[in-house]
Design a protein around this nucleic acid. Sequence first.
DNA 1: GCTTGACCTAGAGCCGACTCCAGCTCCTAG
DNA 2: CTAGGAGCTGGAGTCGGCTCTAGGTCAAGC
Lengths: 148, 148
Amino acid sequence: MSLSIGQVAERTGLSVHALRFYEQEGVFVDPVRRGPGGRRVYSQDDVDWLTVCIILRTSGMPLPALRRYADLVREGAGNEEERLALMREHQERVTGQIGRLTQCLDLIGFKVGVYEDLLDEARPAVEPGRPRPSDGGAAPASTPGTSA
Amino acid sequence: MSLSIGQVAERTGLSVHALRFYEQEGVFVDPVRRGPGGRRVYSQDDVDWLTVCIILRTSGMPLPALRRYADLVREGAGNEEERLALMREHQERVTGQIGRLTQCLDLIGFKVGVYEDLLDEARPAVEPGRPRPSDGGAAPASTPGTSA
DNA sequence: GCTTGACCTAGAGCCGACTCCAGCTCCTAG
DNA sequence: CTAGGAGCTGGAGTCGGCTCTAGGTCAAGC
C-alpha cells in the first residue's frame, strides 16, 4: 500500500513540510520512493517508522539522535548494542524529565491549594464552628516563594 | 540582605544574561533595585521569586505566562481567581505532559526490552534445557514499528 | 597610572524544529 | 485550454529562550 505525502501527513499528524524536512534530515531508514513526476510514495513501513519517530520526538529525542538511530537501523543487524545504548540513554532522559516534572507539580499543586484556600476562605461567610484550614498554609518555611 | 547579579546567578543557576533578560521580560514582581554605578541589587525576595520562576520554567511555563503571573502578583490582592486559573492551567499542562511522557516511556521500555532480549539471546551459548524467551517479542501486531 | 574583574546597555547571533514562500511541474475536471 | 489542486525544490523566515559581543563605567590592587 502506498500513500502520498498528503495522506501520510493526514494520518501521522505531521505536516507535509515536516515530512520533507525529516527526509532531508535523514530520519527515514530507507530513501522515500518516488512515483511519477518525482512525487514521494510512502509505504506502510514508512508510516510505522514515522509513528516510532513521533513517539521519540514527543518524548524529547532530538533530531540528530533520531537520525543516528535511523542510521543504525539502516546499517542492519550487528549494531544492536549501540541501538540499545541509544534507547537506554533516551529512556533515562525521559524518566529524569518525568521526575523533574513531578517535582515541579508539587509546587504547582501547592500554589493551587493556597489560592483555593484563599478564595473559599474569603467568599462564603465563615461558619463559626467550622475548623478553618489551619493557618500558615500560605508560606511554610520549607516552601519557597509562597508570598505570591 | 542584598546580592549582586553574579551572586544571584551563582545561587540560582541562571546566567547573568538570563537574569537581565528575565528582568527585561518583566518576570520580576518589583523592579530590581540599583546600587551605586547602576548595578543591580537583588533581595532575598527576588531570589525566592526566581526560585519559583525556575520551577515554573522547568515545567514548561512559557515566559509570557510567567510575566502574566508576575503582573498579577504585582497588582496585589484581588486577582486570586486569575492566579488560580493560571496555575491550574499550567498544572494541567504539566500533568498532560507527564502522561504523554509516560506513554512514550512504554514504547521506549519495550524497545529496550527487545534489544536486551536480542542481545542476551545471541551472546551466551544457548543451554539446551533453558526455555528461550518466547518468540514474537520483537514484533507483536499491537506494537508498531518494531521491525527496527 | 594601569590592569583586572565585575558590572552596565543595546543589540546581534544562535539553535532547534519547523514553517512558509516563490516559482516550477503535473494531472484532472469543466 | 485553462483553472485548481497536489506535489516538487531551494532557500528564507519564525519563534522561544537565551547567549554573546561591543563598547563603556567603576573600584580595588599592584
